[in-house]
Design a protein around this nucleic acid. Structure first.
Length: 352
DNA sequence: CCCTGTGTTGAA
DNA sequence: TCAACACAGGGG
């Protein structure tokens, strides 16, 4: 606090964050926020500074970022909002959002998953429906965090609920651990053995034209623009969102944005295969699965199981999603999962 | 180059 | 636990 720059007032006030009123749009695409230009990027309000000679006033050039009135919400230099929750002395990042309220709602979801259904400290104190509570309990913290970061939580919750109801009321126990495999039927659309460039740094997977045109026809409008976003669920129940588009330059259909994350998390290597499937049900949900290259001698028994995707041999239940053989070794479970999308894990210090 | 999300710290 | 601040590094 030493360097309290004290630019005249402005400091507090935040109360009126108002402005945001434009309720017109609910989801709001994302036109850049209003005054983003104000904030200095990078080092934001570098300590010191200010005053200088000049007028001694200065003020304007770099204001402190506006505080949020919501818990777990922090401002980002570019005018967007971040959401975070703490657990065990560690911050768990919940993603960035265009709207402050969106970030606040994400915090609410996280706090229920992390601290229980009756966590009192939510921003919008909704009671938490039974179905949502069930949904939360059916997924690991890491999965929920992942959905929040990818902004897919609402979609997945909705899908989960309709599935639970199931037209005939013959509720199956889907609630527990994912594993859709059992009852729900799905058809295999096609499979591709990935090439070195599919798993390299290009962040793209080429979809063989024949399959692309047969199963993933791209709307005319999309071919000219930037393509479309598609959601695919993997064997752990995690939903992946990729950009799907057509590259005129190479006359190819490709999955781009988001693809490298999948490659990284699953530890895909050239020669492995990715398989695309689709629910035969009315929802037409898409799925993506992967198999390690058959032929190579399996390094460890776990991979054997992986090879037989589609069949739930290994009780994936409980720990399910740990998959990754990336690291090769497992340490504490829950915590480790957060290393997932992120790069470094750091701290696990405690345990003592 | 831009922006996310982590490193870090002081306060609650 | 939490938010403010700064900015390294990832991603486009």
């Amino acid at each position: 606090m030493d360097y309290s720059c004290l630019d005249d007032n402005t400091s507090n006030n935040n109360n009126n964050t108002s402005e945001t009123l434009s309720m017109s749009t609910k989801k709001t695409p994302s036109p850049p926020p209003q005054a983003m230009r104000l904030y200095r990027m990078g080092s934001g309000g570098s300590s010191v500074v200010l005053d200088l000679e000049n007028n001694g006033v200065e003020t304007e050039s770099r204001k402190k970022l506006p505080s949020s009135k919501f818990k777990g919400v922090v401002p980002q230099p570019n005018g967007r909002w971040g959401a975070q929750i703490y657990e065990k002395h560690q911050r768990v990042w919940l993603g960035t959002f265009n709207e402050e309220e969106e970030a606040a709602a994400s915090y609410d979801v996280a706090v229920r998953r992390f601290r229980g259904r009756d966590a009192a400290v939510t921003n919008f104190k909704s009671p938490a429906s039974d179905s949502e509570s069930a949904f939360l309990e059916a997924h690991s913290k890491a999965e929920i965090v992942d959905m929040l970061r990818k902004h897919t939580y609402a979609d997945e919750l909705r899908q989960s609920e309709r599935k639970f109801l199931d037209g005939n009321g013959k509720r199956r126990k889907t609630a527990t651990t994912v594993n859709e495999n059992d009852g729900v039927s799905r058809e295999v659309l096609f499979e591709k053995t990935v090439t070195p460039s599919d798993v390299g740094k290009l962040n793209r997977l080429v979809i063989p034209k024949q399959h692309a045109e047969k199963h993933f026809p791209l709307p005319e409008t999309a071919t000219t623009t930037k393509g479309v976003l598609i959601n695919l669920e993997d064997r752990t129940g995690k939903v992946w969102r990729f950009r799907y588009s057509y590259w005129n330059s190479s006359q190819s259909y490709v999955l781009t944005k988001g693809w490298s994350r999948f490659v990284k998390e699953k530890g895909l290597r050239a020669g492995d295969a990715v398989c695309f499937e689709r629910s035969t049900g009315p929802d037409r949900q898409l799925y993506i699965d992967w198999k390690v290259r058959s032929g190579t001698e399996v390094i460890n028994p776990v991979q054997n199981v992986v090879r037989l995707f589609g069949v739930n041999i290994f009780n994936a239940a409980t720990n399910a999603k740990t998959n990754d053989e990336c690291g090769g070794e497992k340490r504490s479970r829950e915590v480790d999962l957060f290393a997932l999308g992120c790069s470094k894990k750091q701290a696990i210090i405690n345990a003592l």
